[in-house]
């Protein structure tokens, strides 16, 4: 299973990569911005995308909209990663069409399981 991580923070991408690869045994590609993320998604066709909400330039929700608009990317499940843990924020993000909203800081030991569980949930 191939996961695309879109986050402007390289350290976060690195931790998430280590977690998903080493703990979850998943394949990972990375992108450092929304625009790059959309291009990578088109090129790599990941099975799921971990998308940071707050990014400079094209932020998480805007990236999601671009992905949904792209023919090859519209069906890829997206999981938001947010530092805002408020329930109202989580509800808002879910309403945009994300399959799950994971909050930072995440636990690298459980992250792969959470991602898999979200993808397996019937939509």
């Amino acid at each position: 299973m191939k996961i695309l991580i879109i986050d402007d923070e390289a350290d976060i991408r690195k931790i998430a990569r280590l977690s998903l690869v080493r703990v979850g045994g998943l394949e990972v590609v990375e992108a450092g911005s929304g625009a790059e993320g959309v291009r990578t998604a088109e090129a790599e066709r990941p099975d799921a995308i971990l998308l940071d909400v707050m990014m400079p330039g094209i932020d998480g929700p805007a990236t999601l909209a671009l992905l949904r608009a792209g023919e090859s990317t519209s069906k890829i499940p997206v999981l938001f990663l947010t530092a805002k843990a408020m329930s109202a924020e989580i509800d808002r993000l879910k309403a945009l069409g994300a399959v799950a909203v994971l909050t930072k800081p995440f636990d690298p030991m459980t992250l792969p399981a959470e991602v898999k569980a979200a993808l397996e949930r019937p939509r």
């Binding site: 923070e9 350290d11 976060i12 690195k14 931790i15 998430a16 930072k104 800081p105 995440f106």
Partner: peptide, 8 residues
């Protein structure tokens, strides 16, 4: 954000 990296 930094705590996510540290803790991770």
């Amino acid at each position: 954000t930094p705590l996510t990296s540290i803790r991770g």
